[in-house]
Design a protein around this nucleic acid. Structure first.
Lengths: 296, 296
DNA sequence: CATTTTTCTTCACCAATGGTGAATAGTCAT
DNA sequence: ATGACTATTCACCATTGGTGAAGAAAAATG
């Protein structure tokens, strides 16, 4: 058991009122939360939480322990933070390669704030959907969005995972009908993002059943933003990361279809040469990425 | 990095004044201490300790951080301890199988104290050098001392490792001479512990070189205590766990030979059925074993 | 009251982690 | 100058911790 993780998990379970809520908040699986709490209780030889599947309450020991460790965790965070003025501040040139759409959609608005907080830092950001060779091309860090990650000697730090969704403009759906199953996609015009791992066929899963449907259309493009524009224009359906179209969905400009089917996930990684000697500028950027992307 | 481990390591490095001393105190390798400190510094983006190979000093940040985390660690320990009155106290019958000599030498004196601390516990201790089948024979936990551990579905928790040493009584050495190399053992009378993995030949290593020497003698016995008695009586040389003869060596009743050669280690494990649901009585006994054996 | 939904638990699995031995470089004591 | 000891680094590997899936249970819903 990682004691600190377990204490953090315990704290969140108490404060959020359920294992499931704590799991969501901490980006852990419910199994992990259950395991951490169980092992903490075993370690302490005391039951901290009485729980059933929908309800929980703290024991006397749990109440006492929560009060104490919440303070301890706060003090620990304060101890870390208190070193701020003494830290080597991030400085110099930071060269980053990042995928075009992901950066424009998810990171670009926050980058000026990041640079404001680090006045000694210069950011050289290359938006590029190629898989660059970090070492050869002189990058400090790269962001990769992929439904798969190639084996590499580089360190890959997972930042977030976002699902793909199938959607279209309401006007398109009114005109061409709403697909009710993945097979129905064969009769539809599908916009294809050619840098993805699912150009010509899309895979769907539901209740353990997986289907793979060939799709086609008249628009193939290497930019997800262009895909989004085409979607907005009612040019067809597409399978696209949710993060890129969340605003459109909320505004009603686009609608989801086949919602009860799940498809591929898009995992976002930060890739950098070494886990050790992570210089302050890379560390600062990593922290920034984690903060920005974990809420996606 | 396990943050709590790293903080504990940092604290001990500061308080003991060196990486090596902290390593010894914490039963870690120097490499582990170095790694933990390095990763803690990387995590904090600040240097905590300036060090050369023989000297170290705290930085300003290190001094500040040490004060804070020492308090945090104390409070955490206090939080754990405060649950004592609320813990399920160990109760009932605890059935333990343990090897004869190890228990008599290393554990027996402390067992009454353990039982005093747990008034609701009854200990049924079977001293047996056989490899018992815990589940079949109804033990809660077994201690195994071995230079190898068979693969098993049981949980094996390493408690300690003690080296073997070759020694004899001074009178024996005066009469028969002192072996200067492992090969010299061929000309000596060697007492053989027949339950060990090295009955008929002993393996020695030095500077990457390993030699295996057949040995023989007129006394073969299944008890290390009897071996020790025979050693004391000047009956020959033997390869025996240091823990069993430490007092005799310190008192001058026995003398080591071939000290610059290393031999097999004796690893001591606690073996029990499941890592989970470690009931309080088993946990209490495990904690006792750890405390008793880590100073061996 | 039956069904559905959601939660918590458990297990086997596996990717990630943390400790290690060995080698090396550096520093202090002799 | 040499020896002894410490700290660092690396490749390795045993252990660990998170996971998906399945199942059981309990609360919500109709």
């Amino acid at each position: 058991m990682d004691r600190l993780t377990a204490l953090t998990v315990f704290r969140h379970v108490v404060e959020l009122g359920s294992f499931a809520a704590a799991a969501r908040h901490l980006n852990l699986s419910p199994a992990a939360v259950s395991k951490n709490i169980g092992e903490l209780e075993a370690h302490l030889a005391v039951r901290l939480i009485n729980r059933t599947t929908r309800r929980m309450s703290l024991t006397e020991a749990g109440t006492l322990y929560y009060r104490q460790i919440a303070r301890v965790l706060d003090e620990l965070e304060e101890a870390d933070s208190s070193l701020g003025p003494l830290q080597e501040s991030p400085r110099g040139l930071l060269r980053v390669s990042a995928p075009l759409t992901l950066t424009l959609v998810c990171l670009s608005p926050a980058l000026p704030g990041f640079l404001s907080r680090h006045p000694d830092l210069t950011l050289d950001l290359r938006l590029d959907d190629r898989r660059v060779n970090i070492v050869e091309e002189g990058f400090d860090i790269a962001i990769r969005a992929s439904d798969r990650l190639e084996d590499s000697s580089l360190v890959a730090r997972k930042l977030t995972t976002t699902a793909h969704v199938v959607c279209a403009a309401p006007a398109y759906l009114e005109r061409h009908g709403r697909p009710r199953s993945p097979e129905d996609l064969r009769q539809h015009s599908c916009i294809q993002f050619t840098l993805s791992g699912h150009v010509d066929d899309w895979t769907f899963s539901r209740r353990g059943q997986t289907v793979r449907v060939p799709i086609e259309g008249r628009y193939r493009v290497t930019s997800s933003l262009a895909v989004r524009d085409a979607l907005r224009a009612g040019f067809g359906l597409s399978l696209i990361p949710l993060a890129y179209v969340r605003d459109d969905l909320e505004a009603g400009r686009l609608e989801r279809v086949l919602e009860e089917w799940s498809t591929v996930d898009l995992s976002v990684y930060a890739v950098y040469p070494s886990r050790r000697h992570v210089v302050p500028k890379v560390r600062a950027f990593l922290d920034f990425l984690v903060a920005e992307l974990e809420t996606t």
